[in-house]
Design a protein around this nucleic acid. Structure first.
Lengths: 225, 225
DNA sequence: TGATCAAAGTCATCCGATGACTTGATGATG
DNA sequence: CATCATCAAGTCATCGGATGACTTTGATCA
């Protein structure tokens, strides 16, 4: 941030107020001092305070209620909400990933081309089954296949979200329970490609769901133990 | 964003200026009219203009140079990861949101409780059908219902991602084509609740899919026109 | 030509005033 | 006592003017 060198008073005020919020000194729901008070505390004019507050309102930190006051709405940057998704349980992450896979397979079935199908078959062949060796490399090849399915959907939003999750899921798997979660075999993967090729959206999403079932079963067992 | 329902002058000014930028009428590098001029054009005071500009500066759209003027830095929001979602097409965003809705309904069907069902029914009743009036307020009530469905899934990852998208989708809708996208009626919503209540996961997700169909049809028509 | 500098243009900040809205107290009413 | 209408204080929303700081421009001059 080069802002430090030439921060305007309004920008400084914005940072000061935000610091109070993220530090928790002004907790969620708390009411801020009124504008005149803030003005005095920060040693800037009321207009400058208003500019600072307006920015924080736009960023989702604050909420102003005319006639009532200014209140803390959130103590975290809402633009980074996805970070929160990262910290959810492993099962939640898999379920979310499953949602993306299912919809992607559906869309891929509706929009597939012969070239896409050929690419999927090639990636699946390269992936192979896991037969010992470096687990991380296998996971990488496996992810390449799944990303290709998402790409086949032609939906960039799904791709972005999937990338986001696949990275963290990979980490989690490798670090913790990799041995306990079964990798669906080649046939289960091939079923997905076949369903996409037929162009039947329902079959494609159902294939993904069957595909994921054993993973969820394994996760449930882990949660019980 | 419920902000539109009772948008302050400053927020309206922010949107007006941003609209000029994203539409390309003020291209990157262009110099904006001076504050007095903007003040006259937008029929608000200069202080209000400054608040609006300050927000857009914080979002990375504008840059102010004291003594020189205000210039367009970017026509897209570069400050956050939201960029990725903003740049995807509206259709992509809806498809991604649909993926979340479908999976959430499925999980909700498997995990529902009487209280959750009652809450959903209450939210749907509060939502009502759109019968004129403030569109933004209706969208807010509609979102509350859909978020409740996601919450009923018990999956925090889905909730986070959904929040992420609903914000940008709402913005896009309100800013551009709100009138063109049909809102599914109460019955379509009620069908989802009923399906969840029966505990049949497939029916629940199918209900959501039927629910979304007319929206996609409308989007397709927009793309063709 | 090149450097200097003054003036105009523009944003930064401050101040005071008025309007609009919310909230809580007050008091009348039944 | 409970309820409701009314009112006053507190607060944000917006306005307009004024002054300072900084940049750009162009005229002036060596």
């Amino acid at each position: 941030m080069q802002t430090l060198s030439k921060a305007s008073l309004a920008e400084s005020a914005t940072q000061s107020i935000r610091a109070e919020i993220v530090s928790g000194r002004w907790s969620v729901g708390a009411k801020l001092p009124n504008e005149a008070n803030l003005s005095a505390t920060l040693s800037v004019s009321r207009g400058t305070v208003r500019e600072a507050v307006r920015v924080l309102v736009a960023q989702g930190f604050l909420e102003t209620r005319q006639g009532s006051g200014t209140y803390v709405l959130s103590s975290t940057d809402p633009s980074k909400t996805l970070d929160m998704a990262r910290r959810t349980s492993l099962r939640d992450q898999f379920e979310a990933r499953c949602a993306l896979d299912v919809e992607a397979a559906r869309l891929a079935a509706l929009r597939h081309t012969p070239k896409v199908i050929a690419d999927l078959r090639r990636l699946l062949a390269e992936r192979g089954n896991y037969e010992g060796g470096e687990k991380a490399e296998f996971i990488t090849r496996d992810l390449a296949f799944h990303k290709a399915v998402i790409a086949a959907s032609g939906n960039r939003a799904l791709m972005e979200i999937y990338d986001f999750f696949s990275a963290t899921i990979t980490e989690t798997i490798e670090a913790t329970i990799s041995a306990e979660v079964p990798e669906p075999d080649m046939q289960a993967h091939a079923d997905i490609i076949d369903a996409i090729e037929t162009g039947n959206a329902d079959n494609a999403s159902a294939a993904v769901r069957r595909f994921m079932a054993p993973v969820f079963s394994a996760l449930d067992k882990l949660l019980l133990s």
